[in-house]
Amino acid sequence: MSPIITLRDVRKTFGPLVVLDGLNMEVQRGEKVALIGPSGSGKSTVLRTIMTLETIDGGEIEIDGESLWHMKRGSRVVPANEAHLRRMRSKVGMVFQQFNLFPHWTVLKNVMNPVRTVLGLPEPEARARAEELIALVGLQDKVNQYPGRLSGGQQQRVAIARALAFRPKVMLFDEVTSALDPELVGEVLNVLRMLAHEHDLTMIMVTHQMGFAREISDRILFFEHGRIAEEGTPEKVFNCPTNDRTRAFLTAVRQA
């Protein structure tokens, strides 16, 4: 079966800064992958390009065997239009470092309204789906609270439920615990651990939690200068890294 996500020779620049430098990357269906590496190495940009929050300057991204930024019209290949992008995006969900919950809606509405509006689910169905997911992340007693009244960890769990409500094939987690107070990290990681047991769900995580990455990933990708400098199973990358930069990075992280 073809990979769920393929990046081929992807380039992304911000002015003179080269963020992704001919990146090649594949993620298999159901695979749990952690992206690690120094800041500015392009890890978050990878997730943002897959979610179409950033365009790319070169190369190709495929989701589920289909080009993200191009589509077929007859026999010709043309730039993707909004309808194509929306169909592609529906396969992917994303959770952000800063949660980005909608502050004018309650927890229930944050999870329920998007699937009602975007998927056109009828209210009872959307509500049932939302309540089930809110319970899954352990916040059933907070359904009618506004995000401003919740802790960071609780907000992030709602954000995960909100993305899951679309039943995406791929979930992108962009440093989802980096904005949290240390004592709130655990509750969010527990939700991710639970999701990691979902056999069919593909998870791509950018994280600085090395212990966690090692625990739940099938594969670790070490990024540097917009490319993958080293990859492999957690045992290989953490125990016997072959790349000098990987070794230096892991040493620095362990000392912190």
Binding site: T52, E82, G93, Q98, H104, P114
Partner: peptide
């Protein structure tokens, strides 16, 4: 309105006008 609100709207597959009327303008 923080940029993250727009990004969340895109990630949740809202169209531009729906994002504006349901998420951005109410804030």
């Amino acid at each position: 309105v923080p940029k993250g609100q727009w990004e969340a709207a895109v990630a949740l597959n809202y169209g531009r006008s729906r994002a504006m009327t349901e998420i951005i303008l109410p804030q």
